[in-house]
Design a protein around this nucleic acid. Structure first.
Length: 339
DNA sequence: ATTCCACCGGAATAGCGGGATA
DNA sequence: TATCCCGCTATTCCGGTGGAAT
């Protein structure tokens, strides 16, 4: 026998990747993206786009949102999205896109990438297609971008943290991406975050479950990051629920924010392999450590240590995960934990 | 001024696991 | 069964960097 919920109405709404019915404070971005996307419906080529801005500013959510809207008006549009950070190789990018496109694939390790590319081309030739590349600067094989940019039936939406994300690519790629429309996603202001939270509260929580001033509290400390703010709200709601309260107190909310940040982090830590974990632990212990010392310690700590170059790769990966920060160049570089 | 040093990171290569083929 | 092919990861190789040592 289950007690009725005291604060939570709909838990799904309280997750950061829930696709909301409206996107607050992103009107200019919506119109801009829609305008660029519309030509696909008439089978003429659309403008490529780069959505950029800091984490938690709605870039990925927006891409999903706009594609959803578009599909309501035209049922023959297909779309796919890949996180190029998690799936950086040519094979994986095509594989994931084909799956999203509904092409049936049996994953065999022996499948050559070119076969996937052929099937992709065939599929894309049939109908208007939207391709979303999240974390596009992490892509490993630039040919992917070159191919997509040349394929006129594809509307390409790229997502990155910085507006300079495309600068690092080779000249040929850059010129094929010329005319890419930049769409900026600035960090939310405190007031905007409050609005966003209010939306979630309205659908996700019971009436009067949380005070406006409590929302202000969390918003002013979330640093413009809606993902953090929403997760903090969720954690606070769950806590209130387990404590059988009918309202989220300021005290609970205060504790929820660091937990939301921690949750973010531990999710990344779980992805690390034992070697990377060992490196992380050493850096945590030392507080701040130089490369030589770090490798020395690592070699002693772990059996069957990886070679230096591999460790460097691990470290840059962890840097990108925002688990550690590296400062300085060459042998003057130091590694320490984020925060 | 020149050489040395400790490290970075790109590129090529080797080895592995696993399915396909003969 | 033996061999080939494929993608992926780790390793090897190496040119580059910039302060320190000579």
């Amino acid at each position: 026998m289950r007690r009725p919920n005291t604060v939570i109405e709909d838990a799904r709404v309280l997750t950061a990747d829930f696709l909301p019915k409206r996107m607050a404070h992103r009107n200019s971005q919506i119109t801009e993206i829609k305008r660029n996307l519309e030509p696909v419906l008439e089978n003429s080529s659309s403008r490529n786009m780069l959505l950029y801005g800091p984490p938690g500013t709605g870039k990925t959510t927006m891409a999903g949102y706009v594609v959803d809207e578009l599909k309501k008006h035209s049922s023959n549009v297909v779309s796919g999205s890949v996180n190029c950070w998690r799936y950086p190789s040519r094979f994986k990018v095509y594989y994931n896109l084909l799956q999203d496109f509904g092409v049936n694939l049996i994953h065999r390790t022996g499948t050559p990438t070119d076969e996937l590319v052929d099937r992709f081309r065939a599929k894309v030739g049939e109908q208007p297609s939207i391709v979303i590349l999240d974390e596009v600067d992490q892509i490993e094989d630039e040919r992917i971008l070159y191919d997509f940019a040349r394929e006129s039936s594809i509307a390409l939406i790229m997502i990155a943290n910085k507006g300079t994300a495309l600068y690092d690519f080779d000249d040929r790629i850059r010129s094929s991406l010329e005319g890419t429309q930049d769409v900026r996603f600035p960090a939310y202001t405190k007031e905007q975050l409050v609005d966003i939270l209010e939306d979630r509260v309205k659908w996700g929580l019971r009436d009067n479950a949380v005070d406006d001033s409590t929302l202000h509290r969390i918003s002013s400390r979330a640093d413009g990051d809606a993902r953090i703010a929403i997760n903090a709200l969720r954690i606070a709601a769950e806590r209130a629920e387990t404590e059988d309260l009918e309202e989220i107190t300021p005290d609970i909310m205060d504790k929820a924010l660091p937990e939301a940040e921690k949750e973010n982090k531990s999710k990344s830590i779980e992805q690390l392999n034992p070697h990377q974990k060992a490196l992380y632990d050493i850096i945590e212990e030392e507080g701040e450590v130089k490369p030589g010392k770090l490798y020395q310690e690592y070699k002693e700590k772990v059996e069957d240590p990886k070679v230096k170059r591999t460790v460097r790769k691990y470290l840059s990966k962890m840097d990108h995960y925002r688990l550690i920060v590296s400062e300085g160049e060459g042998r003057w570089r130091t590694y320490k934990l984020q925060n």
